[in-house]
Design a protein around this nucleic acid. Structure first.
Lengths: 194, 194
DNA sequence: TTAAAAATATACCAATCGGTATAATAATTC
DNA sequence: GAATTATTATACCGATTGGTATATTTTTAA
């Protein structure tokens, strides 16, 4: 890993939380130089434009979360346990190195909707991957006899995603932790009833 | 209603969809003059600054939705019917004059989180009002014997909100209508099981 | 209808935006 | 260790940002 690659990585790591908190349009080059301590020339020597940094930062934030989830899922053998890992992870997300600013998919979905199609595409892709992962857990759980074999797999997966994202949004907006606990309680019930 | 008040209203109506689509930071004064056909001087003669217009536009978008929901709820006598009105309204929201850009609470929650505290406060307030309305429907439904008397009222209300907002986010990001239908199906089931 | 008041348009402000050419510096290769 | 290449900093670009002072036009009240 040569100097250039290291600096590139450094820029991504330092700007990722800023992009996630302030959004794409809200993050200026000045924010980026402040976050990194580097100058504009230095940043533009490693990236073609702000878009490239934003995209790389988004990927970084996504990977941050998927790594945590994968780790937590691995702790459980049953597929119900793996699904419940979402509940417990998000319910204690202060314990984990979650990206500052919350869920990057949620953040990107609303802002980049009309303004930044490339970023929106990445966010949609990430959501799709997440959906597939949950669907796979449900499908395998059905095969293992853990879940009802008549479970509508895609619908259940989408419902889990919606509850998690809705929960994150409400918690972020209100700051009330018992709101989060309440919604996560419902999600747990939903998963246990599959 | 004198000229000034009419112009103020006109500015709000024309800029409200722009703010909701592009966000607060993403909407420039040029966007506002384009949307209204007025000049900067004219806008600043009626509002102190961009903040004031953004706040008024947010209130306008919120009222737009609450009016529709109130109307749809009034069509049903039962409280279960009133709750299901959320499902049916959002499921056919193309039929209604919903604000362009989707749910203003969702849009504001993510963007204004760190950047615009006043707007965030209004969004949190609107969400709180919504939560209270749903809780009231559930409480009255319990008194009427429609719902199980052991229903955790606040938890159920928050879950409904989370599912709706999560659904809106996923639909906005992916554009897939059958995702929306699936999640709304789960919400309907949830309400019917209260 | 005319005078006072209010609303709108024009022209401008400093500051910041994203981006770049060039010079200086550091890393790499021979 | 010297030469070359890659990386970073400086200084600047035009365009756009939010905002304002002033002039002009339009409402409103007498």
């Amino acid at each position: 890993m040569n100097k250039a690659a290291r600096t590139k990585q450094f820029i991504v790591e330092k700007t990722a939380p800023v992009f996630n908190e302030k959004g794409y349009a809200g993050t200026s080059l000045t924010d980026m130089t402040n976050a990194t301590g580097l100058t504009k020339g230095s940043i533009y020597g490693n990236f073609a434009n702000k878009d490239e940094v934003a995209l790389a930062a988004f990927e970084y934030n996504i990977r941050q979360i998927t790594d945590i989830i994968r780790q937590e899922k691995a702790k459980h053998d049953t597929y119900r346990g793996k699904l419940l890992a979402y509940v417990h992870t998000y319910n204690n997300f202060l314990k984990h190195p979650f990206p500052a600013g919350g869920c990057p998919i949620l953040n990107t979905a609303t802002e980049a909707d009309d303004t930044h199609p490339a970023l929106k595409e990445r966010a949609a892709w990430a959501l799709g991957k997440w959906k597939e992962a949950v669907m796979q857990d449900i499908t395998r759980g059905i095969l293992q006899g853990e879940f009802d074999k008549d479970t509508p797999v895609e619908q259940a997966a989408l419902t889990i995603l919606a509850m998690v994202e809705g929960c994150l949004m409400i918690t972020k907006l209100t700051g009330k932790m018992h709101y989060r606990n309440a919604i996560m309680q419902s999600l747990e019930t939903f998963i246990r009833e599959l």
